[in-house]
Amino acid sequence: MAIGGKMSNVDQPSMRGFSACLALIRRDLTLTFRSPGQAINPMVFFLMVATLFPLGIAPDREVLSELAAGVIWIGALLAVLLSLDSLFKSDQDDGALDQLLMSPHPLPLLVLAKVFSHWLTSGFCLTLMAPLLAIMLHLPSEAFYPLMITLLLGTPVLSLAGAIGSALTVRVQRGGVLLTLLALPLYIPVLIFATGAVSAAMQNMPYTGHILWLAVFLILGICLAPLAIAGALRVINE
């Protein structure tokens, strides 16, 4: 088994689980680097969505700066959704998922590692791209920091909540649209608080409350989502 091989020198069970997670993250990242298209496509999609808005609405500076935060967030949300489709499906196709399910380590922990590596290759990269889009859409400079903080806190929640949908639809043929249907309602609170923080900053109002709520969602997500994802993977593959 690919995951179990590396940790014969570590004895405590909890440490073994941890190193299994590290191995899993390394594996997923290696796979992504070998065929980077899967990770790059959502980012190009993100850029294109941001290009469509000025074309579709108006290229005026005032209008765009008003809309910028919302556009960037909705673009990021859709891009994450796009990338989620293959989160468990490719593992299902090559049999790695069965290995994961049979592993002696706690499944929620392994799943959390998978979601983390997914976030590194999707949400985190989107966050890194956000400044470019912020310039393109004339985001006011005072709104820049809140946007980056909300993206950093919010995109992991998108990965976590979306992974539940991804796990539930792993056996469904062409489950992409279904995944969207399942995940989008879960994304609404994140979207509300993230764009709320940015527009509060644009009105020179305090936005710490929004940020803290996003952090609460992230903690809640880290605690609860892996359980749901693991449960979903188990029952679907029984």
Partner: peptide, 9 residues
Amino acid sequence: AAAKACSIL
């Protein structure tokens, strides 16, 4: 499988 998936959802 549908039963359990829907329950979780």
